[in-house]
């Protein structure tokens, strides 16, 4: 592949990056990228807890009742996020709890929204004809269609050394989500302790959908020392594989991670 087409946009307090093989039609690429960015901006309008009049802020502040969502123009999408947050809370045994973030505990679905929104944005790229692409949503990645005659190569950041990667995942279609403390400190909330989770440096999860990969990575960060066992069980049930970096220079990955990371094949 010679070169790539790329586009970036600042959304959700981070930067979204889209890339496609260099032989992609430039007009098609530009239109698809703009549709995906619009999709992400819209999700930010609805779900940002930092915008005081967003539906999520209204729910948090008691001004919008969940029971009344059926009449809301964004009701269906909000319900999707609520269902996702419920599922992640159940899956993680309460370690991920969108209804108990912060002190005092408040509703904040941020840990689930970005991956879900990026999954939708990637689908929008495909719908606009950009079948082969990478979408980097501030560190969470969705790829589709491969890079011509090879899979996409997704670097997993080294949490201790900015600008370096620990290893490289190869996949034509799928998601790589990473949650960690390297960029914004300890920000994943552990409702069980009422404090930010700080047991791990970084968790990456690889699987088909970024919606779930991102949710699982966030839940694993909140689980801290129990994350590896939880991810191992999760991998057996769902096929989503995990890689954990803890504070003691220990790196562990679920047994079938080598499917995605050739360097780990033994």
């Amino acid at each position: 592949m010679t070169g790539r087409r790329t586009a970036t946009a600042p959304i959700m307090g981070t930067v979204m990056s889209i890339a496609a093989p260099g032989d992609t039609d430039p007009d098609l690429f530009a239109a698809a990228a703009e549709a995906a960015f619009a999709c992400l901006r819209h999700a930010d309008e609805v779900f940002s807890p930092f915008k005081t009049d967003s539906p999520v802020s209204l729910i948090r502040d008691g001004a919008l009742r969940v029971a009344g969502l059926g009449d809301h123009p964004e009701g269906a999408r909000i319900q999707e996020i609520l269902d996702l947050c419920h599922a992640l809370k159940t899956e993680s045994g309460g370690a991920f709890d969108a209804w108990a973030v912060g002190d005092p505990p408040a509703f904040d679905p941020c840990g689930a929204v970005k991956g879900w929104a990026a999954e939708r944005a990637s689908a929008a790229l495909t719908a606009h004809g950009l079948t082969g692409h990478t979408l980097g949503a501030g560190g969470d990645v969705r790829v589709r269609g491969g890079a011509g005659d090879r899979p996409w190569r997704v670097g997993i950041a080294d949490p201790r050394r900015p600008g370096r990667v620990l290893t490289v995942a190869e996949l034509a279609d799928g998601a790589v989500a990473t949650s960690g403390t390297a960029e914004r400190g300890a920000h994943v909330w552990d409702p069980r302790t009422g404090r930010p989770a700080s047991g791990l440096l970084q968790v990456s999860v690889i699987g088909p959908s970024l919606t779930w990969a991102d949710g699982y990575a966030t839940a694993a960060m909140a689980l801290g020392p129990q994350a590896y066992d939880w991810l191992t069980d999760l991998a057996e049930r769902t096929g989503y594989e995990g890689l954990v970096v803890d504070r003691e220079s220990r790196m562990r990955w679920t047994p079938r991670m080598a499917r995605f990371i050739p360097a780990l094949a033994s």
Binding site: G3, T6, T14, A19, V154, A157, V165
Partner: peptide, 26 residues
């Protein structure tokens, strides 16, 4: 590599990131 997965960076943090370098290489 084509794209980087890592802890979510801020808009400011992006400027010096590996992903930023990859985006500029398009």
């Amino acid at each position: 590599i084509d794209v980087v997965s890592g802890a979510t960076y801020t808009s400011r943090g992006y400027a010096g990131s590996l992903q930023s370098a990859l985006d500029k290489a398009g």
